[in-house]
Simulated scan of single mutants.
Amino acid sequence: MKYLLVQADEDGVEQLWGRCAGVEGLFADPVPLPREVLTLRGCRPEGLLNDVLAAPDVSLRGLGDVCVEVMDDERSVQWWTLVDAVVVAHRPDPADPARYDIVLGAAVRKEESFVDVPAPQHFELLTATGPAGRCSAVEGLFAPRADPEPVPMELIGCEAAEPVLVGTQQPRRWARDQLDLLVLDRQGAVMASRTVGMAIGGASPSALGEGLEDITLIDGGADRPSPAVRPVWARWYQGPPTEPNLWAPYDAQGREEWLELTTRAWREPAPRPDRSGGEYRLDGRFVTDVPGLHCAMAEALVGPGRYFGREWHAFADCLAGGFAVVPPFTLIWQDSEVARRAPADPASQPQGLSAYFEDVVRLLERRGVTVVLR
């Protein structure tokens, strides 16, 4: 059995719902959101948006993902993401040449809502490179949208506990429940977890043995890894990494998944107390992108396969303590020129890895780390 189905009770104790030999549909790319047309009204652009509007080929220039914060007088009350936003057309406001009406093409994803949308409100725009301007309205943002159709998942060769057995006979009973699907490595340790819906679409006897069932879940969950990262999972299935730089052969997407797998706290038998002082050596030979920087940093500070942040904010939190290492200490960054000279990836690091590298060094020094670049 390679998979466990569990659900936490009111006291947080995990109850076993079933064990499965296989899963079809564990890896699946997210269903793409439909493209829409939106209009930024009365927009005063800055940053990347201002640069794009000034370019002669403006209709061919993308902005990447654009965060739209709906603001009242004091704070952000809603966040939206315009995924892969592209400027389709624009025109200056006749009454104010500093303002524009800008037509965008993008997929729209709602991220967070705190309170009802204020009236009137204004909109702050943010891209990966920083603030992109302010607008008085975003036409098309609040249109009704249907949820994407769920992608099913097949549980193969399941030895089901009573709740699941009842669910296969009366599927509607469990339509609103969610379970955690725990993925085991070859030693039987939990290497990953994914949330799945417990709406059962059907069940049939399994070819793997008498008393086992193949069960179809209508919704296999929205956080499944991409098929492109199967090789990373195959490597982790062999057991927790014990050698450095095993992440190095993968591209940025694979390295991001490597970092995702390091976040599984139950791999650790117990938290280790924070220690400070001493020297740590970072092997910078393979730091060619942002995920690679965090892979190398974690290995330098806490060892292969361990977690020490996977992006800027999480890394800053780890430096504050609670993750085995806390400043002051000395970090010797070997082959630091690799990060300085790595070409920019517009999708993940539009400012270039060099700028991110410099920001990380400054953050470390502010927190009391002595950084030696070699």
Rank of each mutant, 00 (worst) to 15 (best):
E257W: 13
E162D: 15
A270E: 00
V151P: 03
I156R: 11
L217E: 01
T330A: 05
I218H: 02
C135S: 04
A300W: 06
V68K: 02
P97E: 08
A248C: 07
L261S: 01
R235W: 14
E36K: 09
G140Q: 03
Q178Y: 14
T288N: 06
W233R: 12
A320C: 12
I102T: 03
L246I: 06
A314P: 13
G18R: 08
R75L: 03
D73P: 09
R19I: 05
C295R: 08
G352F: 08
S206D: 07
L141E: 01
V232L: 09
T168F: 10
S193P: 09
E311Q: 15
P227V: 05
R235M: 15
C295I: 04
V68R: 02
L63N: 05
L261G: 02
R285I: 00
D116F: 11
S226T: 09
W80Q: 11
A161H: 15
A234F: 10
E358W: 11
E159T: 02
E213S: 09
P304R: 12
F286T: 02
L126I: 01
F27M: 12
P32T: 06
F357P: 12
P227S: 08
A54G: 09
Q15G: 12
A137D: 00
E213A: 05
A222I: 00
Y237L: 14
P118T: 00
V326R: 13
G42H: 06
S354Y: 12
A228V: 05
W174C: 00
V115I: 03
P231W: 08
A248W: 01
G188A: 05
Y250C: 07
D73I: 07
